[in-house]
Amino acid sequence: MEIAFFDNLAVNGKSFLHNASTLSKFIFTAIIINCVIISRGINELIFIAVLQSVLIIAIRLPIKRIFMAAFNPMFFSLVFAVTKYPPFGYDSLLVLLKTFSAVLSVLILISATPFTELFSLLGHFLPSIITDALFVTYRSIFILIQQLDNHLTIMKIRGGFNGGFINSIKNFSSLLGLVIIRSIDLSERMYHILKIRGYKGKIYSGKSFLVFNKQDIVSYILAVGTIMAVILL
């Protein structure tokens, strides 16, 4: 699953961006996305995409895999771009480039920042029930993914996806039903243990909100450079 892949990159990375503070990375991403949104020309967008590609290589992320992940969500933009500006012209390309760069921005962010740190940061702005549920979602994904993988493998070995479309859908649904039942049991056990450990409506993270370090400077320089480029190009 993509979330596990990117989280692994974030946890094991050692680059300046990995070591920068979460808040700075968040601000950097927000600036780039805003530049992408307000851009009205192909030149600016190509500049941003090139800058992002150089950054991906510089911080030693797998560029091919990240580009693949960035192309997947572009289906909607393609439909939108073709139908709004038929058949396919300058404006269509503009829409596609905007989506591509915006997706790259968040993929760079999650490749350099573990999800737990992002959730801790968001915890300062979101209601605690949502932040806590985000932590539980994150933990549960890693617990359930293993179960789901095992079930899928067994299902394939036992021929669960042979025997036609209806049979495959039926078996796949039973498998999901099983995962849901196990998930609900898991949530009950998790809630019990949370209560036993004194949970009173907030999972605390010791991380402070306003933390900056030397590594942040590079991301701010890049952000300012992008703003200048968007203005000048």
Binding site: I3, I145, L176, I184
Partner: peptide
């Protein structure tokens, strides 16, 4: 509020369901 863990786990189930490619479609 006791359903918080269920909320989190169902979020995970939804994300996992999305990640499963239905090979046949």
């Amino acid at each position: 509020e006791g359903k918080m863990a269920l909320l989190g786990v169902m979020g995970a189930v939804m994300l996992l369901a999305m990640s499963v490619p239905l090979g046949f479609i």
